[in-house]
Write a protein that binds this DNA or RNA. Sequence first.
DNA 1: CTTGACCCTCCACCTGCTGGAGGGTCTATC
DNA 2: GATAGACCCTCCAGCAGGTGGAGGGTCAAG
Lengths: 269, 269
Amino acid sequence: MFTIGHFSKVTGLTVKTLRFYHEKGLLPPAAIDRESGYRYYDQGSLERARVIIALRGFEFSLEEIAEILARSSDEEDILDHLEKQKLVIAEKISRQKDLAATIDRILSTEREARTARLRSDGFQPEIKKIDAQLLAGIRVCGEYSEAGRVFGTLGRRLGRHIVGKALCLYYDGEYRESDANFEPCMPVRKAVEVEGITMHELPGQHCVTLMHSGPYEELGRSYEKVFDFAQSNKVEIELPTREVYFKGPGMIFKGNPQKYLTEIQLPIG
Amino acid sequence: MFTIGHFSKVTGLTVKTLRFYHEKGLLPPAAIDRESGYRYYDQGSLERARVIIALRGFEFSLEEIAEILARSSDEEDILDHLEKQKLVIAEKISRQKDLAATIDRILSTEREARTARLRSDGFQPEIKKIDAQLLAGIRVCGEYSEAGRVFGTLGRRLGRHIVGKALCLYYDGEYRESDANFEPCMPVRKAVEVEGITMHELPGQHCVTLMHSGPYEELGRSYEKVFDFAQSNKVEIELPTREVYFKGPGMIFKGNPQKYLTEIQLPIG
DNA sequence: CTTGACCCTCCACCTGCTGGAGGGTCTATC
DNA sequence: GATAGACCCTCCAGCAGGTGGAGGGTCAAG
């Protein structure tokens, strides 16, 4: 016979926990002194305690543990419980993986934005090669202000498959107040089947680019600069044009529009 | 201005939760009617609510969220919080993976034991090829009764690396009450560095085998049978001999010893 | 002026414990 | 046989992050 303190040392459960399990009927002491109310545990309690500890390790609730203890005395009897718990755990793992990937994405985007801003003493138009990428996007016909909501949807639907910065393709050669034809996109590693999202490969191309620093309302000025540059270099611009969001409204905060960084990319022949 | 019910629909937070967040000071309404006590929310509340929802999605506690909201207004400001949360999540993932692997192992062991028992109408000694396997074990010098504790240690230390059924190597050619020389082992996929555990490759070998059904106390009878078989087939037995535990005391329940299944494997030249 | 949909506060409850107050009990030593 | 110190008891409160309900006030439409 163990006193509660002794039993606590043997099992590794605290005295408080043992009293709690008694109260719940999960692990009643083998005997209770009628006079003093002292609890006494025995070898049988010890075995039961070990089972409880093991099941708790598998993240069963105390209620389930009670049910299992009432019905079963062998692993064989609880295969379905284990099967169910496995699903629960698999679910959790996939959720956590999504979270981890999303956090990683935020971290690397922010770090890149920070280094990009370091050379922000004056962004100049330039011509560079942009590599091919696989994009998952949602084609929209409407106002540009809808883009935010669409990016939200993309983020939620694609989760951990996203591997780069958000970008948007513009299929009109001009600015439009309404009926604009554009496609918010996220780069993905490999094709993902998600309802309402279309995959396509953006070819590698040379582009005239310019990093725009500041709110989207002022993008016009940067577009002017970059179009001028294209014209004076006598290059033809192809559609769709692109905007890559180095820093914009984040997944958490809207942030300060003065700090937004957007790269305009105009593909050339 | 939204009433609480309206705001609840917009944000997706329940009315109860909104009142709770108000009480915690996390999301105070924009205005409160002095007469009726009605809460009214505005656009600013909406933005704050969205931030809270996003942060809660990353499994920050309400306390941390409050702290973040008080200090930060851009993803850039909370990179260290995110970094920390990433570690927390990585920790959780690895724990859950271990759990999932352990549950899988129990499931497949039990299923195998079940099918093994189906042909238990009478196990007969036979000679078969046992494939090579990589083992992680703890060499023991003492009594056989210590094996249980050692298997427990192995299970805890190796976690998800275990890929098969527990087995034990016996380096004495005989039964010993004390100073027995044996090694509880777990098969692993690849070498793992764990303190106190040694890795070694068990070579593929032909063995005389016999499945023993019942408690360990009765193993002697099966050993007799299998030794007889070896002798009548004129084969030499090599050390270490092995026992493979198809079904024994489990990780959760001790189970019924009458149902234990143990395969005796005696390697032959 | 009534009806029904809202809103309010306050208290209790969920899981799986932990902490503390206030008081009794056990055992060894003096 | 007294006393100290370790141990045990019950009961109440509290953690996170809410949910549920009782009992009662408010608002807008018909």
